[in-house]
C-alpha cells in the first residue's frame, strides 16, 4: 500500500450552479496531521465529505488509501474515522450504546467491541457517563464521544470537521490533548478549522482555502514566514481615525493592513516599530505587539479576516 493516504487532483464539486470546490490539488501522507483552513463556505466541509466517501466528486481525481471512493465507498469507509461538524450522535441511545452500535455498523463482533468500547470510554474520559443519554452530556463530552465513536473501527485516518467549534477554552484543550495522543500513535489526522490557533497547534501541514480554491500550502511556520513578517504591531486610534494614520504607518513597516477597528503593522521588530510610532507623535489608544499567526497569512492572501 502506498504511504499517500489521500491524493486529490483537480478535485471539483459542483451543486447546481454553485462551485463548492474548484479544482484543488493536495496529498496527505501517512501519519501526517493535515489541516484545511479557511472561512465558512470555503469548501472545507465539502472536501471533507468527498474524502469521507459519502459525497461523489463532480470531476477530477480522488484516491483514498489507493482506492477510488466512487467504486469502493463502504470499503474505504472501513479505514476511516469520521467526526462530523455537528456531532450527529444517536440521541435515542446512551453513551455506551452509541459506541457499541456504531462499531456494529462496521460488522465488528461483540467480542471485539466489548473491550474496545471500554478502552474508548477511558480515552474520552467518559467512563462515569456510560449509562447517560447523549443530551445529559456537556458539549465537550459530546464532542469527545463523537471522536471516540470515530475511533471504534481503529481507523488509519481520522477526519475531523471543525472539532472544537462551540467549545469553551478548557474543553478545547482537553480535546487537543486527545488528538495529540492519536497523532503520537500514528493516526493520520485531517482537520478542518477556521481557528488559526487550532491549525497552528494541531497541523503539520495545511492548505488555506477560500471560495473553493487553495490559496497556499505549507506548514504553519512556512506559511507565516512566506506570507507575513515575524511580528505584528496592532494599533487602534479609534474607529474614525484609523485610516488617517495609514500613510504615515506605511513608511515604518514592511506592510500594513487597515481593518475597521485596528491597523496591523507588519515588521520584524515589533517593539522598535512601536517606539518609532510614538516618536513620530502618533498616540494609539491601544497597542499590542505579537507574533504573526495564520490569521495574518489568511488576511494577506484574501484581504479578509477568517472569522467575520
Amino acid at each position: 500500500m502506498t504511504s499517500d493516504m489521500i491524493i486529490a487532483k483537480d478535485l471539483k464539486k459542483v451543486y447546481g450552479d454553485f462551485v463548492a470546490v474548484d479544482g484543488i490539488n493536495f496529498t496527505v501522507k501517512q501519519g501526517e496531521s493535515f489541516g484545511l483552513l479557511g472561512p465558512n463556505g470555503a469548501g472545507k466541509s465539502t472536501t471533507m465529505k468527498m474524502i469521507s466517501s459519502v459525497s461523489k466528486r463532480s470531476s477530477g481525481e480522488l484516491t483514498i488509501l489507493g482506492k477510488d471512493p466512487d467504486k469502493f465507498g463502504p470499503e474505504i469507509r472501513a479505514h476511516l474515522g469520521v467526526v462530523p461538524q455537528k456531532d450527529m450522535l444517536d440521541r435515542e441511545l446512551k453513551t455506551w450504546e452509541n459506541l457499541y452500535t456504531y462499531g456494529r455498523f462496521f460488522g465488528l463482533s461483540r467480542k471485539f467491541l466489548k473491550p474496545k468500547v471500554e478502552e474508548l470510554l477511558a480515552f474520552a474520559q467518559l467512563e462515569e457517563k456510560r449509562n447517560d443519554k447523549v443530551e445529559e452530556l456537556s458539549g465537550g463530552m459530546q464532542r469527545r464521544l463523537a471522536i471516540a465513536r470515530g475511533l471504534v473501527n481503529e481507523p488509519e485516518m481520522l477526519l475531523l470537521d471543525e472539532p472544537t467549534t462551540g467549545l469553551d477554552p478548557q474543553a478545547r484543550h482537553i480535546l487537543w490533548d486527545r488528538l495529540f495522543r492519536l497523532k503520537e500513535q500514528g493516526v493520520t489526522l485531517v482537520i478542518t478549522t477556521h481557528y488559526m490557533d487550532e491549525a497552528e497547534q494541531l497541523c503539520d501541514r495545511l492548505i488555506v482555502m477560500d471560495k473553493g480554491k487553495i490559496m497556499a500550502e505549507g506548514s504553519p511556520a512556512e506559511l507565516i514566514k512566506k506570507y507575513s513578517s515575524k511580528e505584528v504591531v496592532e494599533v487602534r486610534f479609534g474607529t474614525d481615525k484609523n485610516a488617517q494614520f495609514a500613510d504615515q504607518l506605511k513608511k515604518l513597516a514592511d506592510r500594513i493592513e487597515v481593518l475597521p477597528d485596528r491597523i496591523l503593522v507588519y515588521t520584524s521588530h515589533g517593539e522598535q516599530t512601536l517606539e518609532k510610532i510614538s516618536a513620530q507623535g502618533m498616540n494609539p489608544v491601544t497597542s499590542l505587539v505579537r507574533r504573526s499567526s495564520l490569521e495574518d497569512v489568511f488576511l494577506r492572501l484574501t484581504g479578509r479576516t477568517l472569522v467575520d
Partner: peptide, 20 residues
C-alpha cells in the same frame, strides 16, 4: 492502546470480503 496495528484488519477485512 493499539489503534493502528493490532486489530486494524478487523473492520477492513470485513469490508474487503465483499469486494467484487
Amino acid at each position: 492502546m493499539s489503534l493502528v496495528n493490532a486489530a486494524v484488519s478487523s473492520a477492513v477485512t470485513i469490508a474487503e470480503k465483499r469486494r467484487g
